[in-house]
């Protein structure tokens, strides 16, 4: 059974007395333990959809069911990584990771070993006592991922997590995230503009159209894991990338 069911969800914003139809109606399902990526052009409502999944925004119509229960105002057990790392300047790296536990009122003693282990796993363990501004963009985003994973979320939401990074760091982060996912086995929904990134990281890719976003294609990515960057030169990989690109070309997003 699917863990998350999205039933004809729509989102309309009011902006200066005018209604802006941002999303949908879209329907889809997400299976437990799998990584699904949503690719689509800017402004197609991907981020809105992600927020609705996380209970951070409400649909104007339709509903989201998590394990059969409608999503309410606030959801438990969610980890979110945003495009910006959103580290707090007044906390050191370790304390930034621990924020996720403090917000839930958990004692930091209990989670500190896990926080340190996560920082080690993500390759920034040596910087636990440093301040955020001493780290590079890629390192900061690693800390943000550690923070999202701290409380062992069942759902990981990634809203263009690497789009502010340079190409090389981005590839590195992709491999790293893939490794982390291999052990964490969290249900994950990723949003990106990058087609190769989408294919590389996911078990399934959903292709969205421009505003108001609807689903154009639903592609299973059955490439073996763990994946290495060399996979991107394989014909199977290229075939999926091409299929997505063709979708965008047909809908006029890519000329």
């Amino acid at each position: 059974m699917s863990e998350i069911v999205v039933q004809s969800v729509e989102r309309t914003y009011r902006s200066g007395g005018r209604a802006v139809h941002a999303l949908g109606p879209v329907s889809m399902e997400f299976e437990a333990g799998r990584t699904t990526t949503i690719v689509g052009p800017s402004g197609c409502g991907k981020s809105t959809l992600l927020r609705i999944l996380g209970g951070l925004d409400r649909p104007s119509a339709g509903q989201v069911l998590v394990r059969g229960q409608p999503v309410g105002e606030r959801m438990d057990g969610i980890g979110v990584v945003f495009q910006r790392d959103l580290l707090l300047d007044w906390r050191n790296i370790l304390d930034n990771v621990l924020l996720a536990a403090e917000m839930k009122g958990l004692p930091r003693r209990a989670v500190e070993p896990r926080a340190r282990a996560l920082l080690d796993e993500l390759g920034v363990g040596d910087f636990a006592d440093r301040s955020p501004w001493e780290l590079s963009g890629g390192m900061r985003q690693r800390v943000a991922i550690a923070r999202a994973l701290l409380c062992e979320p069942w759902l990981l939401l990634l809203d263009e997590p690497f789009s502010a990074l340079d190409a090389m760091t981005r590839d590195q982060m992709g491999v790293l995230l893939q490794q982390v996912q291999q052990t964490a086995k969290t249900t994950a929904v990723l949003i990106t503009h990058s087609i190769p990134e989408a294919v590389f990281l996911s078990d399934r890719v959903l292709v969205m159209s421009g505003r108001p976003g609807v689903i154009l294609d639903d592609i299973a990515v059955d490439l073996p894991r763990p994946r290495t960057l060399a996979l991107r030169e394989e014909p199977e990989f290229a075939a999926i990338v091409r299929r997505i690109r063709v979708q965008f070309e047909r809908s006029g997003v890519l000329a």
Partner: peptide, 17 residues
């Protein structure tokens, strides 16, 4: 920062926290 407040909400933070 509104994004920071969103992050805090995603962590299940109460208004007080």
């Amino acid at each position: 920062d509104p994004d920071l407040l969103l992050l805090a909400r995603s962590m299940g933070g109460s208004s007080w926290h």
